[in-house]
Design a protein around this nucleic acid. Structure first.
Length: 257
DNA sequence: ATGGCTAAACAATTTAGA
């Protein structure tokens, strides 16, 4: 079973790229982020025509998350991150598909730092940490995938010194990620590629993709039952070179069926 | 270091991304 995450950066603007990638990769489950569309503008007809059932939580202009399942309807288990009724951002959705619990997240960017956006990022991360402490204990496989907007270590940044004070690499944010790992979660990409340079995002600016000036910010965290089934973890780098593509690459793991 | 690119909401610029 292939489970993927893809920050599409506009699900409607990106639809041809998304459909081509779905056809080529044939993932069983897909978490999408940055739909940038309200619920009624989600392209459900095209996604169903591609063979996928879906649930989604949209928002006008920004954010927005979805979960797709090939030949199945995801069973929604949660929509929105608990812990703050005033948080109106669409950044978390969760579903059960074929015995696996999948959470798809779009963690706040947090720039500029310092400032209210950075404070929001830290609060959101703290709420996620609470939720994931509960989810970790689930007996079934749990996969929390998405755009975490954090480079966990220096090797996950093309030029660490330039990002030192950025909200994606700040000590508080990296510490929060370490806090998740301390709960027991496995960073799937890093576990299977301990010594490789892995990037999942390349800025549209400055020809970043061609220069391999990337960041690793899209992650898969697996609980123990999921980790036992982990076979592969890869980045579909070539998609970043397609026409009208997202600034993020699709990322995926394969779990033993 | 800086400025550069892209999408969406709008209907020419602004906001946000990372």
């Amino acid at each position: 079973m292939i489970i993927a995450t893809y920050n599409v950066n506009g699900v409607n603007g990106r639809l041809p790229v998304l459909l081509r990638w779905l056809a080529e990769r044939q993932p069983n489950i897909v978490c999408l982020q940055e739909l940038k569309a309200p619920d009624e503008k989600f392209p459900i007809q095209a996604i169903e025509a591609a063979g996928y059932g879906a649930i989604w939580h949209g928002q006008k202009s920004w954010n927005g998350v979805a979960i797709l399942a090939k030949g199945a309807q995801p069973i929604e288990t949660r929509r929105g991150l608990p812990g703050d009724l005033d948080d109106s951002h669409s950044r978390y959705i969760e579903a059960a598909v074929n015995g696996v619990l999948v959470g798809g997240l779009y963690l706040p960017n947090g720039n500029p730092r310092p400032g209210p956006k950075f404070e929001y990022k830290l609060r959101w991360f703290a709420r996620l940490t609470e939720l994931m402490a509960e989810l970790y204990a689930t007996k079934a496989p749990v996969v929390i995938a998405g755009d975490y907007n954090v480079m966990p270590t220096e090797r996950d940044v093309y030029k660490p010194e330039r990002w030192r004070d950025d909200a994606l690499f700040a000590p508080e944010v990296r510490a929060a990620f370490v806090g998740l790992l301390a709960q027991g979660w496995t960073d799937a990409l890093r576990k299977l590629h301990p010594d490789e340079t892995i990037y999942t995002f390349f800025d549209y600016f400055r020809n970043a993709y061609a220069r391999n000036a990337g960041l690793r910010i899209d992650h898969f965290l697996l609980n123990k039952p999921a980790t036992k089934r982990l076979l592969r973890a890869e980045v579909d780098l070539a998609v970043r070179g397609w026409e009208k593509t997202s600034d993020h690459c699709p990322v995926w793991v394969e779990l033993k069926d």
